[in-house]
Write a protein that binds this DNA or RNA. Structure first.
Lengths: 205, 205
DNA sequence: CAAACTTACTGAACAGTGTTTAGTAAACCA
DNA sequence: TGGTTTACTAAACACTGTTCAGTAAGTTTG
């Protein structure tokens, strides 16, 4: 069935074409401000065509989000390679925050926008790749706890606490809530560094 | 000029009428899903009338946001009354998180939605009441540092670190990112408590 | 008091959105 | 070659935020 194979391949390619354009445009202009019509125009198809590949705009976002997690996971695997679990934890923290600050709009899609979680909540749908990222952190944390390198004893409490801290830093920056704290633009990176440093110092056993 | 006074009063009343309806509706259905038309219908005026009192939808949101901060500030002033600064800090943390979890949609408007910050950034416009809330926390933190009750030495680093932690907890909950961490609904409050507790324990000098 | 002016409000329109549907033309299969 | 499936689109639907000409009161003035 060569034809059926090719058709399936073409279908995947088309989906990819749509998603790539969508991701680029979401990143450039944000999710809300990117219209289906604009995406369609970019790839030179009619708006209705997109609906043959994605149920609705949220469904498209969900795919873009998964792509973002794939990128983050790859960064973790490539750069958080220290043998010592606690050092690896430090690497993870930096990678996470850097990712968020360098790609604020993708971070937005992944961790702030509510929309894609609708799909995650319904049916047996998974938080694609998101869970893999979370698992990477949890594994490192468990190693830290076993080696008694951090004060936490419960992995989940540790994971949530650290994630909250990092997400707080990134999202307050991404959503511009930090500018109000009469800090100058130039001081912010330093304060962020200090925050991460002091946090890691504090949880160290 | 009795008539001019009355007119001004009526103008303020009308603005209040719009804002109250808007706030209720934003809370019930969220900002994005509440249309100007729907607000107008609720208060039995034409949509165009709203534009006589607010420049645009963001401007309206900005007012609602300020209202939210007024509420939070009042909670701080009423309930964070412990004489001991570190104890007061603990009270602040609980009040903040409870506020966020009890009023997720107002919290959303105040700390997550990007829109109102556009207005804050432009011109000399202030982050109305938001800064007062931040100042309340900063004052308490300074007292903690003076009394050497916390490990931080820089007030801003301390403020940002604590705020990040608390905002992280609330927003990961509000935006449903915590549900993915294979925790049951029932376990979450406990983990949140533990997170706050352990964080406070760690920053204690 | 009547005329002129001001104010508060609205109906209707504009330009945009996500999404659906009926219809078409090409590709495929028998 | 004829029938069927597939891929796609034009046009419409029901919404959105926002603007503007027009109206009908309220207020001020001659």
């Amino acid at each position: 069935m060569g034809i059926a194979d090719r058709k399936e391949r073409e279908k995947l390619e088309m989906k990819r074409l749509i998603m790539d354009a969508a991701m680029r445009m979401f990143v450039e202009a944000g999710y809300e401000k990117t219209s289906i019509r604009a995406i369609a125009e970019k790839i030179e198809y009619s708006p209705a065509t997109i609906y043959l590949y994605y149920r609705d705009k949220d469904d498209l976002l969900y795919d873009v989000q998964a792509q973002g997690f794939a990128q983050l996971l790859e960064l973790f695997q490539q750069k958080a390679t220290a043998k010592d679990p606690f050092k690896r934890l430090g690497q993870i923290a930096r990678i996470y925050v850097d990712f968020g600050l360098e790609h604020p709009d993708i971070y937005d899609l992944m961790f702030i926008i509510r929309a894609p979680m609708n799909k995650v909540e319904e049916e047996g749908s998974k938080w694609l790749n998101g869970e893999a990222c979370f698992a990477f952190v949890v594994t490192t944390l468990e190693a830290c706890i076993v080696k008694k390198q951090i004060k936490f004893t419960d992995t989940m409490v540790a994971a949530l606490s650290i994630w909250s801290m990092l997400h707080g830093i990134v999202s307050l920056n991404v959503r511009c809530r930090i500018k109000v704290s009469n800090l100058t633009e130039a001081e912010i990176p330093g304060v962020i560094d200090s925050s991460i440093e002091s946090y890691l110092g504090m949880i160290k056993a």
